[in-house]
Design a protein around this nucleic acid. Structure first.
Length: 301
DNA sequence: AAAGCAATCAACCGCACGCAA
DNA sequence: TTTGCGTGCGGTTGATTGCTT
């Protein structure tokens, strides 16, 4: 009884993906579109679990993924949304379409948690001093409540967020543009995948043999890998577009790539954060001074 | 230069959910 | 209604990298 494993454990490769495997996966998805992941290892010959293939695609190879340092705005948005939604990383990631839930989760666990903890200590110090430091309000808002009150409030927050999200989505649905990730598979372009892999290969090749262990076959093929990727991904019936992002009112421009238009709630959050940012100095204190619940109640009631 | 430690992040694991038969 | 499958999600792990001593 019980569910069978998603794949046979024996003969399944684990660990980091090689560029060659990435090529195979991207080429396959380029042809068939994402989905039906169980069939991917069988049809591609990849010795990978279907889940592993899906994860590799969604977290790394998928078009439009931005990697690298989080901007101040992104950071604040994550903090804001985490306070509102809790550890619902997938939901949070919908407001940062260029970041994966995994990325956000990692960033939260490695950077933001510590940062907020530090802030919490600072806030406690402020409170003890009898001052009304800005960092206190957020934490007082949540921590002074009893557990039951806090949970009810959280439920309300979640409800509000859901409502806001559906409103935002309905607003976006009226626009001709459709977010890239909600497009049917055939509407995807894979230029960004090429860029992703090229970037990946570049960094991979830049690393010294000392810093990165690899097989001899990998090292002999690396010089031609980038070209192979380009060929594999670009040399197909799917004409690679320069960008799958859109440029319209409210969109952002990043590294020459137009970014999807801001949703209603995202705009609101960023505006709010912008105000906080401009309100004065002591950014870290201001960070924690986001009256989430109250604003949400006022805004969405 | 080398060893030890901490930080980071890609990837894995297991559970939950939705849907079709 | 039940069952099985495919997929999504969040927590956790472990390899790698960078920093400190």
């Amino acid at each position: 009884m019980g569910r069978p494993p998603c794949c046979e454990k024996e003969g399944v490769k684990k660990g980091p993906w090689t560029p060659e495997e990435d090529i195979v996966l991207v080429s396959y998805i380029q042809e068939h579109g994402p989905g039906n992941w169980r069939a991917v290892p069988t049809n591609t010959g990849l010795m990978r679990c279907s889940k592993s293939c899906r994860l590799r695609w969604t977290n790394y190879l998928r078009p439009g993924i931005k990697r690298g340092n989080f901007t101040d705005q992104e950071e604040k948005l994550i903090i804001h949304l985490q306070a509102l939604l809790g550890n619902r990383w997938a939901a949070i990631a919908t407001y940062l379409p260029e970041r994966t839930d995994n990325d956000i989760k990692n960033y939260w666990n490695t950077h933001l948690k510590k940062k907020l903890k530090k802030l919490q200590c600072t806030a406690a110090d402020f409170t003890q001093d009898g001052s009304t430091g800005t960092a206190t309000s957020f934490f007082n808002d949540h921590h002074s409540l009893s557990k039951g009150q806090w949970e009810r409030r959280l439920q309300t927050d979640i409800q509000n967020a859901k409502q806001a999200l559906s409103e935002a989505l309905s607003l976006e649905n009226r626009k001709p543009e459709v977010p890239p990730f909600s497009r049917p598979p055939n509407a995807y372009t894979y230029a960004s995948s090429t860029e992703n892999i090229s970037r990946l290969l570049e960094s991979w090749m830049k690393s010294t043999p000392k810093s990165r262990s690899r097989t001899s076959s990998e090292s002999t093929t690396e010089s031609k890998t980038t070209a192979t990727v380009e060929k594999a991904v670009m040399g197909s019936d799917h004409a690679p577009l320069a960008s799958f992002r859109f440029d319209s009112n409210g969109s952002r421009e990043m590294a020459g790539t137009a970014v999807a238009p801001l949703s209603f709630i995202e705009t609101w959050l960023l505006e709010d954060l912008g105000n906080v940012e401009n309100a004065g100095e002591g950014e870290e204190d201001d960070l924690a001074d986001l009256p989430l619940s109250d604003v949400a109640h006022e805004l969405f009631e």
